[in-house]
Amino acid sequence: MEEVEVAAKKRDEERVASAHAYFDNIHTKRKLLSLVNFILLAAGSLLILSPIWWMISTSLKSMAEVMTYPPTFYPREWNWDNYIKTWKAAPFDTYAINTITITMLVVIGSVLVNSFIAYGFAKVPFKGRGILFAIVLSTMMIPGFVTLIPQYVLFSKLQWINTYFPLVVPAFFGSAFFIFLLRQFYMTIPNELIEAAKIEGASHFRIWWTIGLPLTKPALATVAIFSFNGAWNDFLGPLLYLNDESLYTLQLGLQVFKGEMNTQWNYLMAGSLLVLLPVIILFFFFQKYFIQGINLQSGGK
C-alpha cells in the first residue's frame, strides 16, 4: 500500500521536474536566440550606417587625407569649414530657396487636392465610382516615361519650359498613389459619422472640411511627408524642364556641382549631406507617418 503511494509520489515529482526542465530549456533557448538575433541586428546596423558615417567623415577631411591610402576611418582633423566652402562654391542658397518654394507648393497641393478627391471616392456615392476608382489604380501601372515625353510636348507648347509650372501644377490634380492611400484611410471612418453630419444639415463640402480633414490628419501627414520627399528629391523633372541656373533646384545644383568638383570628395560629400539633411531630420521626427503610409499600402492589398 505504502509502496504504491511512494511510487506515485515519485512519479509526480518526476513529472513536475521534467516540466520545469522543459520550460527552463525553452527560456534558455529563447534567451540564446534573442542574443544571436541581437548580435546579428547590431552588426547589420553597423553595416547599414557605415555609408552614412563615411559620408560625414569624408566631408570633414582635407583633400590630402581623402587621397591617402589606406583611407582613414576618422578624419585626422575636422575641417568644419568644408561645409562653408561647399556652400559658397556654388549658388546653393538660390538652389535651396528654389527647392523650398517648389516643395511647399507641391505639398500644399498634394495634401488638399488628394484629400478632396479621396473623400469623393470614399464617401460620396455616385454612378461609375467603382470603375473610375479602378482607373485611378490602373494608372499606377503606367511607366512614367510613356507619359513623360508627351507631357513634355504639352508643356513646351504651353510655353512652360524653364518655369516651375510643370513641376508644381500636376500636384494640384491628384496623384493615384495618394488618392489610394487617403481613400484607404477614409474607409476606416464609419459612414455613420458622415450620415450624422448630413442629418445635422451639413453639405458634403462642409463635411469634408470640418470632419474629413481633421479626422484624416495622420494620413495627411503621411501624404505631406511623401510628397515633400518626392519634390525635394526630384531630379528628373528639374533636369527636363529647367534651363536657367537661377531656377535650379538642389538636386540639379548638386549634379552640376559634381561636374565642377570632379573628385573633390570632401566637398561633394559635404554638399550631399547638406541636401540630404532635411530628409533625415524629417525622418527622425515623423517616422510614425512614414510607417503609417507603408501600413496603409500593405493593408490595401
Binding site: 464609419p190 450624422a196 470632419i211
Partner: peptide
C-alpha cells in the same frame, strides 16, 4: 429630423 446611431457616430475630434 434627429438620429441616434448604433455606434453613436460621435465626431472623435
Amino acid at each position: 429630423i434627429a438620429m441616434v446611431f448604433q455606434n453613436y457616430a460621435l465626431y472623435p475630434h
